[in-house]
Every structure is written in structure tokens, then in C-alpha cells.
Amino acid sequence: MGRYDFRALRVRQTAKALFENQRNDFLPPWYRTIGDIPPGETLARPVLRTPRPKGRGARKPSRIFQPLSIHHPEDKLRDDFFGDHPWELARPRLVVEDSGNDAKNYDWSKIVQPGKQLDGESVVQRQMWLMKHQRMSKPAAYDQARREFYQHRHLEDVKRRIAKEEAMYVGAYFGKGPLEIGMDLENQSWESWKTWATKQIEEEQQMRAQMFSGSENENMQTSSEPEFDKALEETEDVVSHSSAG
């Protein structure tokens, strides 16, 4: 714990020491190579924040070796757009880069780029372009980029619908949608619960029937009728005086 092992970095010095002390008869094949291309300096920390000058209100410099966070001007625009359109984040997105130079081929004077799907990032980049090249204010550029985005999303929907209609016309068929599959599953479990519940009720009724023998039941029912009438008469006075009656 807390120990640094520099043996991996000192292979050359160790090999030299072993050779000079006749522990090894010959130097390893990489000896010259590592002499020519030495391993880099390790465990060195660059100072990333300038410590504050001493004087009035000077504090002890802290976190000067920790990396700084990276900020881009479009971060705020991105926050705004996705704050207003949170469901844009739920759409599947392609994040694989082709050559790493993909962004250099985009021309944001139009919102649609060949080889890039239309998404929230398009709006942000288009807004940036409008603000920079057409001197538009931030809200005006946002509105324009947003409207173009809505228009293209609408066109995409139309295209998808027409494609489906065309496909169905020439004989394609599509299965159930996710909602229909969900409803089917729910119906299935409802039906199975219903059979289970009827069975339970039947069993319970049978149990009850077994617990009370048949003759007693009949006697109770026959004898109870006059008794019940009598009891009703007795309680009538009390109930009529209550607020509910």
C-alpha cells in the first residue's frame, strides 16, 4: 500500500547492473532499443491551474493538479433545446464516427446533412451557424432552426407513411405494434386470472358447504324467519331515532 514499484520502468538499468556484475552473460536484445527510446517520465503532475498571487484575499491554492472541465459555446444551446424537447433524447442515435472528420463535411447553411441523421444536434449546429453567419439573435436563430427541424420531421413522417402504404399495396403486411402486443399480453393474463379466481371461489364454497352440515343449515334458515322479524321489530325504534334513519 502506497508503494510505487519502479522495476518495470528500470528494466534497462537492472539489465546493465546484472550484466556488469556477471549475473548475466549477455545483454538482452532490447537493451540498446530502450537506451535509444527511453520510457517517459512517470508520476509527474502538470500544474493545470495557476495559483493565485499572494496578497489581499489570497487563499491557499487548491486543486491545482486536477484537470479542468471543458466547455464549448454550444453547451448552453444544447441544454435549452433538450430542455424544451426532452423526448428527443429518447430517440435512438448513431454515434459511430466514420473517419473522425465527419463534422468537417457538414454545411450548416442547411439543416439536413448527407450522412447524418436529423436530430437535436442538427438544431444546435444550425442555430450556431445562423447566429454566426446571419447575425441573428439567439432566440430568433433558435426559432428558425427549430421550425426547420419540425418541418423536416413532418416530411419524414409523411415519407414513412407513404412508404408503408406503398408496401401494403404491393402485398406487404406488418405485424402487431407494441401497444397491441401489450394489450394482448394483458388480456391473456386477465383471462388466466379469471379462471384462477373462479376456481378459487368454487373451492371456497365447497369448503364452506363441507363445514356446515346440510340439515343444520336448513333448520337455521326455516327457524330464522320469525326470529328475524321479531328482531327487526325490536330494533325499529332505535333505528328510527338515529340520524341516519
Binding site: 493545470l48 486536477q66 484537470p67 472541465s69 471543458i70
Partner: peptide, 16 residues
């Protein structure tokens, strides 16, 4: 922290 010299910055909570 030994990797401090290889790190460019912090972006969305991860080191770049």
C-alpha cells in the same frame, strides 16, 4: 492521479 499528465480535461463527468 498518476495519469494527470495524459488527461486533457473533464467533460460530462468523465476524463478526456
Amino acid at each position: 492521479p498518476a495519469n494527470a499528465r495524459y488527461i486533457y480535461g473533464i467533460r460530462q463527468g468523465i476524463h478526456i
